Amino acid sequence: MTMPQLTFELPDTVVVTGASSGLGHELCSLLVEAGVATVGVDLSAAQDDLAALAGYHHVAGDVAGEATWDKVVARLRSSDAKRIGLVTSAAILDVGTILDATPAIISRALNVNVVGTALAIKSLLPLMIEAHVGAIVAVASVNATLAEQQLGIYNATKAAVRQLARTVALDHSRSGVRVNVLSPGPMLAGLFKRHLESATDSDRFLATRSARQPGGRILEAREVAQAAMFLLSSGSTAVLGADLVADGGLTTSFDFRTGEEGASI
């Protein structure tokens, strides 16, 4: 039996930062599979499986460097891209309290997570305004709103990303460009894995964090990438300046009861 399907349109070309790992890598794969010309941006080279795909182009460079974005814009203009999308998923995370945060750690987090997002939007927005169409998805985090221990600098940068995107959405709401925020919870991908590896007992850390999730598991990065696909698509034209929380229900309640704690009454 044929399963019913719902089809939305995607941009002709989408630029994805943080393309060489985690959410960015999964999103690039989904976009190419859907027939979207995809430009990945990352300081690292593209992973082999992604580099081998027709329709994928990689720009190696620092997202906080204007030279990187000059290359991206040149690529878009040379390809005569009309309907452009952007997803800013590049991010770094350092585990530790504020006492562990050196000026170098703080600067690096701000550069990649905030400056990199701002430059990406600043560089591609004129092309979108010129075409009077475009979709921007700024990847923040549930940590932009809710604090998580030992991630103070990361949390602060993601809060900045959230407000940056929401303000850009208002500033350019009459230009045909939609800007929204995607706030993932923990994913079995780069940043969460780094936090996991820093734990004294990684197995216990993973089990405890999984038990907090209403579904009893940490989401796969591909699941969150599908939420980004929705925000890029024509199916989300009613959504502007919104924060789509993709966390498997983690932040729906202040505490998920598994039943192991006993009866509540």
Rank of each mutant, 00 (worst) to 15 (best):
V245E: 01
L124P: 04
F8Y: 14
A169G: 05
A118D: 09
T157R: 02
C28I: 08
S141A: 03
A45G: 10
A118W: 12
R212I: 06
V72L: 14
R257D: 06
V161F: 07
V161R: 03
A118F: 05
V224I: 07
N113C: 13
H195V: 07
A159V: 06
D255L: 13
A135K: 11
H57K: 13
R174N: 04
S123K: 04
Y154I: 04
M128L: 12
D62P: 14
P103R: 01
I105C: 15
G116F: 01
T38E: 11
A207Y: 02
A91Q: 01
T237I: 14
P103A: 01
T88D: 09
G176F: 15
P214A: 05
V41T: 00
L182Q: 01
Q149N: 13
S173P: 14
S210K: 05
S89L: 12
A227P: 08
I153N: 11
S198D: 04
D247N: 14
V137P: 12
A37C: 06
A169Y: 02
D201P: 02
H25Y: 08
K122T: 13
A91D: 00
S21P: 03
N180T: 06
A159F: 12
G235W: 12
S210G: 06
D171K: 15
P103G: 08
A90F: 00
T38C: 14
V72F: 15
E9S: 07
V87M: 03
A109Q: 04
I105Y: 08
E9W: 04
H132K: 10
A91V: 02
I153R: 13
G40E: 00
L151I: 13
S183W: 03
L50E: 07
D171W: 06
A169D: 00
A74M: 06
A165P: 08
T251W: 06
M1Q: 12
V224N: 02
T2D: 08
D49K: 12
E220Y: 08
G35A: 10
F230V: 04
L232E: 13
H172G: 09
V32I: 09
V63G: 02
G134N: 03
V142Q: 14
T17A: 00
V63H: 06
N113K: 14
R162Y: 01
K158H: 07
A144R: 07
I92K: 15
A159H: 07
L231V: 03
D48L: 05
E148R: 10
R166W: 10
M229H: 12
P11E: 04
G176T: 15
E220H: 05
L250S: 10
S21T: 13
I218M: 13
A238N: 13
T117A: 09
H57E: 08
G35Y: 12
E148Y: 05
D48Q: 11
E9D: 11
L164T: 11
L240N: 05
R209H: 08
I136Q: 06
A19P: 03
P103Q: 07
V63C: 05
L196E: 09
V59K: 10
S198L: 05
A140V: 01
I106M: 15
G134E: 01
N180A: 10
R209P: 14
D70C: 11
V115D: 11
L188A: 12
F256D: 02
F205S: 09
T200L: 06
N155R: 09
V15Q: 05
A144E: 00
D243R: 03
G22A: 05
V95L: 02
A144C: 15
G116H: 01
V114M: 04
